[in-house]
Design a protein around this nucleic acid. Structure first.
Lengths: 166, 166
DNA sequence: CCGCGTGCGCAATATTATTGCGAAAACACG
DNA sequence: CGTGTTTTCGCAATAATATTGCGCACGCGG
């Protein structure tokens, strides 16, 4: 399977599973309007095609003891591919770094970090990040509060687009 | 239930479900070393306590037609609470905005946006965001590539902490 | 040592997942 | 338009899982 075009039922399945990834297949089938066996087959196909990458419980980080969330803008002193991917590999190895995106513009990377408290983030910052090779500039921004945190993609936007082009 | 302290089994459950939210309860029970019924009861308790906020399928946005991911730094011309929460409400209503975090420092908010293509993001930017009340400065950064994108929190960090304090 | 609360596991039942298969729908082509 | 082909469906049967009830073991405070 390369990139079989998705029909409306597939999109509904993705949308439902993005909203509730633990829904039973019976319930999912009911919602998308087909019977359970073909529904399950579609889900398996979507998984194998890589459209569904996995399923995750959304954990309440605060309650669990991760009080601090920080965005970090990082600039390197070299934009050579070796330097870039070396930095990316370091990010993958740092547990506090949850996301690492390479950006265009003046800043090279943005990191989203989670830490139990400010001091543990500080020690990561000074002990690991600031001393990493090629790191030229670092600017951190503490998250004060989270107004919106939706997973994945907006399916309603997708619907609109498809309707227009139809 | 206020904030019952979690025992090691609860933490293992959270960790496993964060990694694979669709694992069967039987498999989960096997991994954490108890039988299925008490395992399910623990999961239900964690859900009701709000430690598990939900479950989500991780969708491959690119394959689905969301080619563009953008971080947007927004500054307002007023930091009055009314202005701040008005802006947050607008973000909640914009489907392209997936995350909205209030930050400390010079920038007031960081948004993570997903869009089908550059032009639809541009039209959102010029038609919605830039014309929204109180928006004083906007700086966008396109995501070139994603090096790491882990959901939730690093449980291994939690373990270390607990071992130290013990 | 005893009573009490908490959490476990077993066993039974209800639901759900999964597979095989024939039939309907979609499609390509003559 | 028919017809062979492919795809996808739904039903029915089976396997596996979720869920509930209940008695037992453990830890704790009299």
């Amino acid at each position: 399977m390369v990139a079989a075009r998705l029909d409306p039922i597939d999109r509904m399945i993705l949308s439902e599973l993005q909203a509730d990834g633990r829904m039973t297949n019976v319930e999912l089938a009911r919602r998308v309007g087909i019977s359970a066996p073909p529904c399950l087959r579609r889900v398996r196909t979507l998984e194998e095609a890589g459209l569904i990458r996995g399923y995750h419980a959304e954990i309440n980080a605060r309650e669990l003891g991760f009080e601090v969330q920080v965005f970090v803008m990082v600039g390197l002193d070299s934009q050579a591919e070796t330097a870039l991917s070396a930095f990316e590999n370091r990010c993958r190895a740092w547990p506090l770094v949850r996301e690492c995106h390479m950006l265009n513009g003046e800043v090279d990377f943005i990191l989203k970090c989670a830490a139990p408290d400010l001091s543990s983030f500080q020690s990561f910052l000074t002990g690991e990040l600031l001393t990493a090779p090629n790191v030229a500039s670092v600017k951190t921004s503490l998250v004060i509060r989270v107004a919106k945190d939706e997973p994945g993609v907006p399916f309603d936007v997708l619907e609109e687009r498809l309707n227009k082009s139809a």
